[in-house]
Structures are given as C-alpha cells and as structure tokens.
C-alpha cells in the first residue's frame, strides 16, 4: 500500500469526524425542536427535513455515495422512484375527502 493512498484515507478520516459532529448537532436540533410543540404539519416538515439532511450525510460520506460507480446510482434511482410511489399512495387517499356542505 503506497503512503499516498494512506494519506488519502487520513483525509477521509477527518471528514468522517466532521460528519460525526454534524450528525450529533442535528440530533440535538431534532430533539430540541420537538420540545417547541409546533403544529403537527410544521413539526413533520422540519423533522423530515433534518432527518433527510442527516440521512444524506450518512449516505454520501459513510456509504461513499459522493463518489460511486454509475451502476449503483442507476439502481438507487430506480429504487427512489418506487419508494416515492409508496409514500405518495397513502397521502393520495387524503386527497378525495368528502366535504359535507
């Protein structure tokens, strides 16, 4: 193993520790926001936004999705499409509410 390669990994390690710090801060933020007892809709939007940022950090840095082969992106894009379907279907049940006049 060349020393240049090991130096690269050392740089990665610094990034991992920074991501770790960011994840800890965001976890505290998530819990702190919940104590504000916001409206349910607001609380859901904010909690999901923070969780998405945290999830993205894990996926991009720990799972190395910031530099990965195209084939993996293609398969994940396909998964994301089906995932979106599954999320939208239950929400769509709420769109045709019968309103009594």
């Amino acid at each position: 193993m060349s020393s240049g390669h090991a130096d690269d990994i050392r740089k990665h390690v610094k990034t991992y520790l920074m991501v770790f710090g960011a994840l800890m801060v965001l976890t505290v933020v998530t819990v702190a926001i919940s104590y504000l007892h916001l409206e349910v809709h607001e609380a859901i939007m904010i909690a999901l936004a923070v969780a998405t940022v945290k999830g993205s950090l894990v996926a991009l840095y720990f799972m190395h999705l910031n530099h990965e082969r195209k084939l993996i992106y293609y398969s994940l894009a396909l998964t994301a499409v089906f995932f979106a379907f599954l999320m939208i279907i239950p929400l769509a049940t709420n769109l045709d509410k019968i309103v009594q006049k």
């Binding site: 998530t30 609380a43 923070v50 969780a51 999830g55």
Partner: peptide
C-alpha cells in the same frame, strides 16, 4: 428516520 417519526411527532 424512525426516531423522529415514532418518538417526536
């Protein structure tokens, strides 16, 4: 995702 969804909302 489970943590905020189940515990905080």
């Amino acid at each position: 995702f489970l943590f905020p969804m189940l515990y905080l909302l």
